[in-house]
Design a protein around this nucleic acid. Structure first.
Lengths: 218, 218
DNA sequence: ACTATTTCTTGATGCAGTTCATTGGCGCAG
DNA sequence: CTGCGCCAATGAACTGCATCAAGAAATAGT
């Protein structure tokens, strides 16, 4: 067995494991998630199971690319996605991360049926459960309860965005960093600092200096 | 007639005019607004007319004060409102303006039935049409179409917030100012610069300098 | 196991935007 | 018309954060 075939073997083993995960992909985390908002009856559970599709994305793989329409809503079962733009100067700006049990889509493109100006990609190998616009509409029709569930989701998302905007307007980089670390403890030691910097709207260098000054303080 | 009674007379005349406006308050702008999203039938129009209440706010009057629950959604017919917080240092930060044909509420408090951390007040004498949470729920029940209408509203609002956040992360104060002027032409020569500064997240002094440098360039 | 790539750190320098203080204009109350 | 509160303008000093550069450390690719 030469070097190359070892690589192939490794990749295949990897893919295989991913595929195994996929076929065994459990809809459970999503059902649990809904259950915590409003209890579902069996028919509603059946609908969810039927209309959501599991899908795997490898690290760095695009889930949505600028210029395309975003026609799926993603629920992250395992891994981590980001929603972002790249500006004219080539800088990346992250609007949202989504790790386990978070939703991610470009709402404007998804509901408005417009070309997206945003990108979504995977920061880690990521498994999602996704639903198309058509299937979501079907869900709304068949079980009006989902109207309410998804309204709650967007409301929460809206409130989070408002708070973040306020922070950006009113706080220093250091305050924002500390608040991020506090709010997303599970994320900050899992993501490279470049990503955190792109989220906070500052340079990676400055994140480094902030961390440094924090360590000295303690 | 002494000085004080002149004042009273003036105020009364003013109030009188406001009250006259109020009784004549037309639901038309709101019906027009809905009509542009989805046509309404007569029953739906009747429901809107029945469930929305006109109300007047004087300049500087609170519509919502921090610590209270926000239990009304406001549609501005005439005038201008702002949604804002005041931080520990005493600085005001404006999340949103709402002039004619705009909606304003604290979504988190309204839907979540929580105490609000935000304030809403009137920057000018303002006439709104407002609906309570209960009446909105009633509307959703009686005419499910409104589910969709209000989902579209919150989606639009969400997209606007996302864009603004991106701007704040990625652009200079000057770029943000220019973009504000372009997007809200009708507002920027109607609002004091202190308010615009509080919206953009910069000092009034710096707004002044930006305007100055713009004038020199042209 | 080695190399390439990405990530983090640290220093020097510059600038965008703040802070503080002063001045002047305008609308409004007495 | 006088005095007071609010808003805009402008200068001087200061600072938070960016930029550029270069090296060290960690990770991924083969």
């Amino acid at each position: 067995m030469n070097a190359i075939s070892v690589v192939n073997f490794v990749n295949e083993a990897y893919s295989l494991r991913m595929k195994k995960d996929l076929t065994q992909a459990s809809i459970e985390p999503l059902l649990d998630y809904f259950q915590k908002i409003i209890p579902l009856n069996n028919e509603e559970k059946r609908l969810v199971t039927e209309r959501f599709q599991p899908r795997l994305y490898r690290k760095r793989q695009y889930v949505l690319q600028e210029g395309n329409q975003c026609n799926r809503m993603n629920f992250v079962v395992r891994g981590c996605l980001r929603l972002y733009t790249i500006d004219e100067k080539g800088n990346t700006h992250i609007l949202q991360f989504a790790a386990e049990n978070w939703w991610l889509t470009d709402i404007g493109s998804f509901y408005g049926k417009k070309e997206s100006k945003l990108n979504i990609d995977a920061l880690e190998d990521t498994m999602v459960l996704q639903i198309s616009f058509e299937n979501l509409t079907f869900l709304y029709d068949q079980a009006p309860k989902f109207n309410r569930i998804f309204r709650v989701l967007i409301e929460n998302s809206h409130v989070a965005l408002q708070n973040r905007l306020l922070q950006n307007i009113s706080s220093t980089a250091e305050e924002r960093y500390l608040s991020f670390v506090q709010t997303y403890t599970h994320l900050y030691n899992r993501l490279p600092q470049t990503q955190i910097a792109a989220y906070l709207g500052i340079t990676p260098e400055f994140v480094s200096r902030i961390r440094n000054s924090q360590i000295k303080k303690s």
